[in-house]
Amino acid sequence: MHEFSLMEEVLRAVRDSAREEDIRRIHRVQMTVGAMGCAFPPALETAFSVLTEGDPLFQGAALEIVERAVRVRCATCGWEAIGRDARFVCEECGSSEVEILAGEELTVDGYEGE
């Protein structure tokens, strides 16, 4: 359950920014989590609700997570695949020069408040 320590980092970034922007109430926090981002979205949501409970800054706030599938492309022949079809060795030409285009994200994208 390292999602709690990840969420502490997310909330720290949002709190610091809200203080600078003089924002008193946050409505939503937005994150992007890739399938290989080493975080489980339902666990992030649990951590969010536990760690913001009783904090007036986050009263009624929602966590919005955009999930990204793994997307790969072969640098040799251009073969592309996504999600369950993604492999790290090219299915077309056998090359091991496969780049990960998406799916490793773990970011706090921003938030809305007033």
Partner: peptide
């Protein structure tokens, strides 16, 4: 309503 963009890696502090 104010929209703030952070685009910050969650693990930046650890990195």
């Amino acid at each position: 309503m104010i929209k703030v963009t952070l685009m910050k890696k969650v693990l930046e502090g650890n990195e």
